[in-house]
Amino acid sequence: MNILTFDIEEWFHLLDNASTKSENQWQNFEVRIHQNMERVFEILEATDAKASFFVLGWIAEKYPEVVREISNKGYEIGSHTTFHQLVYEQSRETFQTDVERSIKTLEDISGKKVRMFRAPGFSITESNKWAFEVLHDLGIEIDSSVFPAGRAHGGLPSYGVAEPSILNYNGVQLKEFPINTYKILNKPMIFSGGGYFRFFPYKLVKKWTQNSDYIMSYFHPRDFDPDQPILDGLPAHRKFKSYVGLKKADQKLKRWINDFDFIDIKTANSQIDWETVKTIQL
């Protein structure tokens, strides 16, 4: 099962970067979301692929036409929060207010129920698993925030599985679509989205996909924008990960989609027998 998803945010929505952290700073950067969304739509139309979209409420509020176009093209929309902040840096109340606002905005524009969520930077960790209770209370049924390996933004390695499963926390249950991993030298590696996908040679991506029963991809409009400005102040490793492989990323993704069958979360949800999948107790 290979699933195609996009996180819809602007090119400057990088986490852990002082110059792009707050909404007040975002107004200082040029708008590139429209041209980058056209690249995304072109990829999907060229490959006749379905995908799910996790959209920032901030994008929806400023550019509702983006949400309308996603919805009118028949793609399912989920929340990516309103202000793209790391969840573990927020209080429970702040997180709930933010997500609730994003859901209302997206539903008002699209006229459709929002039932999916993905945290910025997959930033639900051991310290803030209460976020799953908040999501459940807000009507979210499907989550894709679990990064079942260690990473810069924490991750949730204790989750233990990288496959569709039932997440159970304090009696609250969600259908979880975690990011997939691939073991190299017994260490879980990520290759199916963002800078990871752009960095690894396609030969390896293809091999690892062939050897995987489950793929959860995650891309951003900026992943296909080789002309985006380079943000000041990024450490060398962040700069490399943020800008490596941009020139050929669109062709690489088209090749991947053509070589393998991809579906959206809605289709995957309907194909899974949820009575038989693993239940993960957190």
Rank of each mutant, 00 (worst) to 15 (best):
K248F: 12
Q27M: 11
S242T: 14
V146F: 01
S217T: 15
A268E: 03
K247P: 00
E176C: 10
K206L: 05
W26G: 04
N28E: 10
F83E: 02
I280D: 01
P188R: 09
T276N: 07
L156Y: 05
A60N: 02
P201M: 13
S102I: 13
I140S: 01
S145G: 03
G150Y: 12
I257H: 02
A131D: 03
R39A: 07
K113V: 09
D16S: 09
S158R: 08
R118A: 07
H237W: 13
E45M: 14
E93K: 03
K252Q: 03
V146S: 00
W274E: 03
L253H: 08
Q35W: 06
N168W: 09
F224T: 08
A49E: 02
F95T: 04
L135C: 09
W11G: 06
L56D: 04
K252G: 00
E38G: 11
V55G: 02
E9H: 07
F177N: 05
E10A: 10
E76L: 10
W130P: 01
H13Q: 04
K175M: 11
P201A: 08
F54K: 08
F224V: 14
G194E: 08
F53H: 06
N17G: 01
Q173H: 11
K247A: 15
D261T: 15
H136I: 12
I70A: 09
A149I: 11
M216H: 04
K203S: 08
R255L: 13
D261E: 06
I272C: 03
F41R: 10
L14E: 00
N28G: 07
P229A: 15
V87I: 14
F95P: 03
Y214T: 07
Q271F: 08
T82R: 11
E61Y: 14
A131R: 02
I257K: 05
E93T: 02
F122I: 13
Q27R: 11
N28K: 15
I257R: 06
Y88A: 04
V87P: 00
F6A: 11
L138V: 14
F219H: 06
Q173E: 14
E107C: 09
G154S: 05
S19Q: 10
S242D: 03
Y169W: 14
T47Q: 00
N24Q: 07
L204S: 07
V172G: 00
D261H: 12
V244I: 15
